[in-house]
Computed example of a mutant assay.
Amino acid sequence: MPDRPARVRVVLAEVGRPRAADRARIDLAEQNQVGEALLRGLIRAQFALAVRLAVVVVIGLGGLPLLFAIAPSVTTVKILGVNLPWLLLGGVSFPFLLAVGWTYVHLAERNDQDFTALVQRHDS
């Protein structure tokens, strides 16, 4: 028999097959059970953060009228010629809301980074 060259195996199906490293991204895109669980965890974390900061705002700003109703003598206090209720509700409330908003954005971005790290760790 004549010498034959070694056989070469050509497989085209492997080109389109996803790598194991892309599995979590595929799960998210296809929204199968794993992807839904990952997304549900992110949504739950973001919602819990929003609720906690909403409670801070309600207690912080909603507590002021309650304080004024319980202790009416506080309403007569003047600082630099301005009544304390006006100062608190008109001046301090805006920096307070800005601080709460900045905190929300910062913590929401951290949640997103944690989610990305989880997906990448799940991939490898």
Rank of each mutant, 00 (worst) to 15 (best):
108 A>V: 01
33 Q>N: 06
2 P>L: 11
95 P>K: 08
77 V>D: 01
80 L>W: 07
105 V>T: 09
91 G>L: 13
100 V>K: 03
70 I>T: 15
34 V>R: 14
28 L>C: 09
47 F>D: 01
12 L>P: 00
30 E>P: 00
71 A>L: 15
58 V>E: 07
120 Q>Y: 00
8 V>Q: 12
11 V>E: 14
61 L>M: 11
55 V>T: 10
61 L>H: 02
99 A>H: 06
116 T>V: 08
50 A>I: 00
88 L>W: 06
94 F>N: 03
56 V>C: 13
5 P>F: 02
61 L>F: 03
65 P>L: 04
105 V>R: 13
73 S>N: 12
76 T>N: 10
49 L>D: 05
15 V>E: 12
31 Q>Y: 02
17 R>V: 08
32 N>A: 04
20 A>I: 04
63 G>P: 04
21 A>P: 00
119 V>W: 03
52 R>S: 14
74 V>M: 11
30 E>D: 14
96 F>E: 03
33 Q>L: 12
90 G>Q: 03
64 L>Y: 09
16 G>P: 00
57 V>I: 14
61 L>W: 05
17 R>C: 03
68 F>A: 14
84 L>D: 04
73 S>F: 14
66 L>P: 01
123 D>H: 01
62 G>K: 08
97 L>Q: 05
69 A>F: 07
114 D>W: 08
85 P>I: 05
83 N>T: 07
12 L>A: 06
18 P>F: 04
39 L>Y: 06
8 V>L: 15
30 E>S: 13
60 G>E: 05
112 D>R: 13
22 D>A: 12
9 R>L: 15
56 V>K: 04
56 V>E: 11
7 R>E: 09
15 V>G: 01
37 A>V: 05
102 W>T: 10
83 N>A: 14
2 P>D: 04
